[in-house]
Design a protein around this nucleic acid. Structure first.
Lengths: 218, 218
DNA sequence: ATTGGCCTAGACCGAACGCACTATTCGGAA
DNA sequence: TTCCGAATAGTGCGTTCGGTCTAGGCCAAT
């Protein structure tokens, strides 16, 4: 779900011509900010002039719907950088899935040659999502998703070889376009088949990667 | 499915510094080109430096998959302008659904402030698609789709109040993420309920717009 | 200990798929 | 034009997937 290839490097080079005030402000902003779980970083349609680097935690890019439902378009993980977009093109809301530490920093401009804007970032995710949703059954979707988030999950300090599954089931469901129950059922099925282990709700251990890969293939 | 608000105006202002040869070439390119049904305008990953204005016919933006399946992300209609993108970000293939007349013309640059690039264009479509696919049942999806394409369909010269449905059933299915059979069945159901009339395969008459709207609502 | 959020499980049921087959239309050749 | 084969469209039927509903369990925070 992440876009490691886009702007995943460190802070932006400072644009020339900033006043001292701006430089100070910039420096201050480059210190990590704490975001509590559930807090909105920016709203759909709102201008978000800076890029946001995630140091710790998970952010979700979400589309809120009239009927109260939502579609989660992407998750952003530590190391990912959420790029800004023109407000007229800001089509997503960003919320903290967990408590987060993030770094805001300035960009030299919206959508430069070397720094594609948030639209490219979210497009990449969304295209993959459309294809997955229209082509794969829910079992394959979940297997695929688990494999994709695997590299981003932190280790469980208390259980060797186990990872902390930071996302609640509802978020997985709202991302993959299925019901919470289907997510549960499928995870239980995977556990039964020995593909994964779920010592508890928040912990996952990947047991049979090739098996998952095969299921994810279709 | 179209993006009338983006760059739907005429030809681009000519960039300065073109040689006479280039000017001539440019002028020639601004004459309509004929594209036969099924022909590819540009491939995924291929750099497409010019914008393409559709004069007549329908273009589909498609993502080809390994297994031979495809996902149609958007249709472009007369008056729409397909904007270029950096080749690294060119994530779609464009094909002619019907015979087409198009006009190529230069743009001053990729993704300017006043001319968002193709990424924004396709993102807008794709976001709507994801939401539709994950939230609505197939009946609602088709009703919604019919209403959306209605304004773009040309009139049937032989039947009053009837429009030419230029898209084959398979294209509708591959766009909305359902099987060809479901499209057929649903259209038949709409006809039976008096929502639309289908004098023949290629012709549609919208009979009960409020009814369709209600179904599309969900 | 109690509450509330989140997760699990099973029963039930309708929507959509896939297959098999038929019908219609299109487009090129005679 | 007329014919024919291929492509496209339509339909009936059984099956399976996944949503909804319900009831209950686990666990952390109060």
């Amino acid at each position: 779900m992440s876009i490691p290839q886009i702007g995943a490097s460190g802070a932006a080079p400072l644009p020339y011509g900033l006043s001292r005030e701006e430089l100070v402000k910039n420096r201050r902003q480059s210190r990590p900010t704490l975001i509590p779980r559930g807090r909105v970083l920016f709203w759909e349609g709102e201008h978000q002039p800076q890029k946001i680097k995630i140091v710790e935690g998970v952010i979700r890019a979400v589309r809120l719907l009239e009927n109260g439902n939502r579609q989660i378009l992407a998750f952003y993980w530590p190391g990912d950088v959420v790029m800004p977009t023109r407000s007229s093109c800001q089509r997503i809301t960003a919320e903290a899935v967990t408590n987060c530490r993030v770094q805001h920093s300035a960009v030299s401009g919206i959508c430069q040659q070397d720094e594609p804007c948030g639209a490219h970032q979210i497009l990449s995710e969304t295209l993959a999502l459309v294809v997955t949703m229209s082509q794969k059954k829910s079992v394959a979707r979940i297997a695929d998703f688990l494999l994709r988030i695997r590299n981003h999950l932190p280790e469980d300090p208390r259980r060797p070889f186990a990872l902390l599954l930071l996302l609640p089931r509802a978020d997985i469901a709202d991302h993959l376009g299925m019901s919470l129950e289907t997510v549960c059922r499928t995870l239980a099925e995977f556990k039964m088949k020995g593909l994964i282990d779920l010592p508890n709700r928040k912990t996952i251990r990947f047991v049979d990667l090739p098996g998952l890969l095969r299921i994810a293939g279709d």
